[in-house]
Design a protein around this nucleic acid. Sequence first.
DNA 1: CCTCCACAGGAAGCGCAGGAGT
DNA 2: ACTCCTGCGCTTCCTGTGGAGG
Length: 425
Amino acid sequence: MIAISFAVEGLGRREVFGKKGVLWVPTFKDMLTEKSIFRNKETLSPHFVPEHMLFRENEIRTLMEGLLPALKDQKPHNMFIYGGTGTGKTASSRTVIEKLVSEGSDRIKPVYMNCRVYDTRYKVLQKCISHFNPDFAKTGFSFSVLYERLLDWVEGDGDHIEAKRLIVVLDELDMVKDLDSLIYTLVRANDDLKKGSVSIVGISNKVNFKIRLDARSRSSLCEREIVFQPYNAMQLQGILKQRIKQAFEDDSVVDESGINLAAAIASAENGDARYALLLLLRAGELADSRKTRITDKEVQDARKQAEEDKAFEIISTLPEHQQIFLLALSSLSLDSQYHRLVEEGGERFYLSGETYEKYCHYVKKMGKEPRTSRWMREYIVELDALGLITSIQSGKGVRGRTTLVRLAYEPEKVRKIVESTLTGP
DNA sequence: CCTCCACAGGAAGCGCAGGAGT
DNA sequence: ACTCCTGCGCTTCCTGTGGAGG
């Protein structure tokens, strides 16, 4: 009994609601000897940097040109890289950094950091120093001491220790809290330095992020701008094929049409290569468990899974009353006795007013006061925008003017998710 | 054609939390 | 410490709308 409940807790959402609820727990030994179509799953991970970045030759070249002065002992340009998720910004800049380290002199010091972690001016400067001087004490210095330390290190001693070309690569730059002062500090460092230099390479996927910067920081940071365009379907196919060779034991396990489908789906999703690779990974895992090849079917199912996972994550973070509304809607959908529904394009829709009544019923049962129907109409708009429900305006066949709603996902699954989040873990 | 139904959705205002200013 | 301001989530009130039914 204990063993079973432990196993259930350890499983992900999907397994808990898996087919027929049958639980079979293998041993690790079993799992190790299970035959898999994968050789190296890592190559499908979003963090994997391939040896050759496909379709980013121009961007990489522009980046290299911006940093080229470092090899002539001049200050590299500040640069700003912009592009949507999964367009290869991070991987390209890491590729360039690696090239710089392997081909440049010891005096060129590039440091990459993600600003989700290093989100203040202080943390960024500290990382710059500690990255190259691991023995540097982690905290305890005031900001000005830290700044002086950095300048001293960049300048060298003018005798035995040479001046450096520090290049600070700041990924997800928009996450920095005191961004203007960070940029200002790094730019000003060059005025305070007698030798050496500090350059910035900023990376962001937020379009309007630049507006937040003050004019001075903006003009220094955006000295050069590189825009990473979304990949098109053909390019995504190429990327997938490249990774398939590395990821699978035998690349013929993946159907050509499966690749095309994954590429087409990801291309519609803003040309996100990360998403294409995720689909391939999931499809591969499905094929593994089904002991089949990766066909259109596996890719479609992988997409459905990915979408559901995203939706269920959204549901669990929704305000309580929106969740109860979803619960009410799922209960209507599951109630075969319910007759006041409307068929539209083969789908069953429910009247917003009826759904509201059901919602009130649930809320009162929980000993709470329901929100007004006016506010519920706002909820419907929000839930529709989130893609959790589909709403349409009533037309012929329905008395009065109202909104018809239905769940976008399986009612049974939605009910379980809501019930488990409402009752708490 | 008129009336009723079943809402849609705009406007105004309320109570509260959190931040800025003094 | 306090006041003031602002934004948010929500309610109350109200007018508008489009189809069904008589």
